[in-house]
Design a protein around this nucleic acid. Structure first.
Length: 448
RNA sequence: GUGGUUGUAGCUCAGUUGGUUAGAGCAUCAGAUUGUGGUUCUGAGGGUCGGGGGUUCGAGACCCCUCAAUCACCCCA
């Protein structure tokens, strides 16, 4: 046999895995539709120029580029002035890195036709050239819901509600939802007196739960903050208490920062609207930063239940000017994303997949031998037309083998004929070990 | 991209300081047996020991390179 493999960080999904994944997709899709979002799909590849520069320097490196087909790439290569240009010339297309930028591209291309506000959801694979680890793959699915063309914070509230609905429907009611606001982080940088280092500050404090108090201090120092400035940052992120008391304290700190105050005001509305109740209420986490730098307002991140070792399983936020990157300013958007592959790993670890998500055929008939085949195949067809997933063993071999096959496949009902019961169909329930002998009419009414 | 650990049959793993023809359980296949067809017994097939190179009289084991998985960074879903 030839030694076969698949590219690093990609996976095949066997039948039972596909079923369980479909269960997650269906659960998410149902909520997206329920909240009035419309489906959208975009190509696996985008023009490289559409993607480059949208995900920061690190992100650019992780984009999978596709080398041009055609005979003339050598000639194209010679026209490049530097290596960056070489990449662009040689790889006009790239695999998409997320669903948000392609969506923004779509909105710009179609803004004349779209009814704003436009609510779309999208469930497709994306590709990143990251080094694979547990919960990190090079090909994985994202499920996004975004609203563009509306500044209302009602969108934020509904999107958080979708998170709550979906995770409850998946049996993950004890997930954790953390929210923050980019404007508050801007306010912090102003408060400290280092608005120029806002990004460095957020990257450092984002690591608090990983590297601890002293680690953050160290990192802040490395990133160029003076001791007094570090003190201010640490004081800020160590604010404790309820969401309300945190916000109250922040509004005192931000008396000289209109941006910070605006962020406080937004979060106050989102958590205090009284429009909805959450099974797992959003918790304000002042260290939450999120990587993508196009966020401008609320940001949200979903973490798996505390005892599961898994990073974030979803995230999102508001971006005021994403389409501005493509020359169409003034369209604000807000969106969320579900990380299906990680959610799968969490549900698997906690054994939260329902039986119904794993069931294939409900009934299998043994091959009865050539002379009775027509009779049994008629029963098969009858069950199928009732909407019951039914199969028949295709070869006339020893029943012993067929029995083992049915058992391994986990098919709950076996149908077969018995010599001493002409005109009847025998069924065995593999789970409860019951036996039934039914006439065709009784079979039609039987609850499999 | 940086560093650590691991890689032996379809699966889970043995394999002594380097020493004959690399083993076991489960699984697969065949035959027999069986009064709840799922039991039991017998037998068989299956491994260029992740791949390549090196050291050695001799490498599954030691060295180098490479691929993959995994963990910690970086970053992220």
């Amino acid at each position: 046999m030839v030694k076969l493999s698949i590219p690093q960080g990609t996976r095949d999904f066997g039948p039972d895995v596909v079923r369980k994944r479909n269960y997650i997709f269906a659960t998410i899709r149902q909520s997206f539709e329920r909240f009035g979002f419309q489906p959208l799909e975009t190509p696996a590849m985008e023009n490289t120029s559409t993607l480059l520069g949208k995900y920061g320097e690190e992100g650019d490196k992780l984009i999978f580029k596709i080398i041009n087909n055609g005979p003339n790439i050598l000639g194209q290569a010679q026209m490049a002035k530097d290596s960056r240009e070489l990449g662009l010339l040689l790889c006009e297309k790239s695999l998409k890195y997320d669903l948000t930028i392609p969506f923004a591209r779509y909105v710009v291309m179609n803004h004349g036709k779209l009814q704003l506000p436009f609510r779309r959801y999208q469930m497709q694979p994306v590709w990143r050239g990251d080094k694979p680890q547990r919960g990190r793959y090079r090909e994985f699915y994202q499920c996004d819901a975004d609203v563009v063309g509306s500044n209302s914070l009602l969108n934020e509230i509904e999107l958080l509600q979708i998170y709550d609905t979906v995770f409850n429907n998946l049996g993950l009611g004890n997930y954790r939802m953390k929210i923050n606001n980019r404007k508050i982080l801007t306010g912090l940088a102003e408060l400290v007196g280092r608005p120029d280092l806002m990004l460095d500050i957020t990257i450092a404090i984002d690591k608090l739960d990983k590297i601890g108090d002293s680690g953050v201090r160290e990192e802040l120092a490395q990133r160029g903050l003076a001791a007094t400035e570090i003190g201010l940052v640490m004081e800020f992120i160590s604010l404790e208490g309820s969401n309300e008391s945190k916000l109250e304290r922040l509004s005192q700190l931000f008396t000289n920062s209109p941006t910070g105050l605006k962020g406080v005001e937004e979060l106050l509305f989102i958590i205090g609207s009284g429009l909805t109740a959450f099974s797992s209420p959003p918790e304000i986490d002042l260290t939450l930063a999120r990587g993508l730098n196009y966020y401008t307002g609320m940001i949200v991140e979903i973490k798996a239940p505390a005892h599961v070792n898994m990073g974030s399983i979803g995230g999102g936020g508001r971006y005021d000017d994403l389409t501005g990157l493509f020359g169409l300013p003034g369209i604000s958007g807000v969106g969320i994303s579900f990380g299906v592959d990680r959610i799968y790993d969490v549900l698997e670890e906690l054994q939260l997949f329902p039986e119904t998500a794993q069931q294939g055929s409900q009934v299998i008939f043994f091959h009865p031998g050539a002379e009775k085949l027509a009779e049994v195949f008629g029963y098969v067809t009858r069950l199928r037309s009732r909407g019951i997933n039914t199969e028949i063993y295709p070869d006339d071999i020893k029943q012993d083998k067929q029995f083992k096959y049915a058992e391994k496949r986990g098919i709950p009902y076996i149908g077969y004929l018995e010599e001493n019961a002409p005109g009847k169909i025998s069924f065995r329930n593999m789970l409860g070990k019951q036996r039934y002998s039914l006439s065709p009419e009784e079979m039609d009414a039987f609850e499999f």
